[in-house]
Design a protein around this nucleic acid. Structure first.
Lengths: 215, 215
DNA sequence: TAGATTGTTAATCGATTAACAATC
DNA sequence: TAGATTGTTAATCGATTAACAATC
């Protein structure tokens, strides 16, 4: 196995390939092989890049034939940890937290399980949602039993929550609060920021379009 | 004004700068100037890159002094269209759609307004949420009055919805469904995909960590 | 075998960072 | 003026794409 640390972008594409392979399996129950050109057509990713990515799994392709769909799927499963259940905790059980909880619960084919709900609103603590009790976040301690913390609290409390998660040895954080968190380098971090995404779209509409028109 | 089309990454950073400037204004009501080093420290972005980005606004900095916070803010407002209200339509009023609606409504300082809700479930049509009636998506036509469509339907109907939006001349789409949409090149497109984000984090935890340990 | 497609190296592209003259 | 920081060009870095020998 390579001594290389893969980038975000590579994992992102593996996730895309994985979804595509699953769709191929459920749609088209006879086909055994695919190839970089077919995947390229379906996903709009350059075939060279696909071959490069897939070669990271090992020499899994057959020259002249392509790739066994099943072999590819299980290779990606190994890389993305799709053969394990990953435990999630949601911190902040407002509208967004609840929607994310239901979204994950509804997605029965995924390998993610929400095992803990935290909030600091006394009115919410003790309430059970979808069978999981909401606990006070202050009671969190080093004996945590989840792998990834999803922060869905308002921006002003997000950093404190993140610090506590780091303290409890959580290595992966997904932040939905509209604020940039500062975190140690060894923490894997993603953010989902709706307003930022909207700003990018309006920037494009507002500025790039205007330019296109005037040129 | 430059004849350049800015990239996603530049608009993304402008959004980050904008948020930071607002925080500076509300936190620290005396300070008039900032500079690329201060912003770099706060945002963890290289000062050269900050200067490069900000120079796209125009020659707005003062050598030896830095940047007027207010001038910077209004320059970014122009680029990101923060001085207009942008109208959003939500298509798919399930848990996620409702959570996004409330999230945007609660964010009173933003320049985004949800003006239309669509669904195709007869049981939902006519119901009003937060004062907005849910309409049947099939009734959508070219006389639309929104700028951005947010797709929060399940994966299997997302492409048809997107096609209809494109038909109705919508130029910006944000997709929350876990599927890659195929769209014409002139459509500005962003996707928010929770499972993909989780896959990236678990890929990192599962694979990069293992590698780090064994090396 | 001939044809097809991989796996991989080299070339290109685009984004970030370094360097520094210009100037407040 | 001296010191500080911009604005911008050149260098670097990292990711994608092109090319093609290897081989099924």
């Amino acid at each position: 196995m390579k001594d290389k640390i893969f980038s975000n972008l590579i994992f992102e594409r593996f996730s895309i390939y994985y979804r595509c392979l699953n769709k191929m399996i459920s749609d088209n129950n006879q086909k055994e092989f695919t190839d970089s050109n077919e995947l390229s057509y379906l996903l709009n990713i350059d075939p060279s890049l696909i071959r490069r990515d897939l070669s990271l799994i090992g020499k899994i392709g057959k020259r002249g034939m392509g790739y066994s769909i099943n072999a590819l799927k299980s290779g990606i499963e190994n890389i993305l940890g799709k053969n394990k259940i990953w435990k999630l905790a949601l911190i902040g059980i407002g509208n967004l937290g609840r929607a994310i909880l239901r979204y994950i619960l509804n997605n029965t084919s995924s390998n993610y399980s929400v095992v803990k709900l935290y909030d600091n609103d006394p009115a919410k603590i003790g309430i059970s949602i979808e069978g999981i009790d909401i606990k006070n976040f202050d009671t969190i301690n080093k004996h945590i039993d989840f792998n990834i913390g999803l922060i869905t609290v308002p921006a002003d409390s997000a950093q404190a929550i993140a610090d506590k998660l780091v303290d409890c040895n959580i290595k992966a954080i997904m932040n939905f609060a509209p604020i940039k968190l500062s975190l140690p380098n060894d923490i894997f971090y993603r953010e989902v920021d709706l307003i930022k995404e909207l700003d990018i779209l309006t920037g494009m509409l507002n500025f790039n379009n205007a330019i296109q028109k005037s040129s």
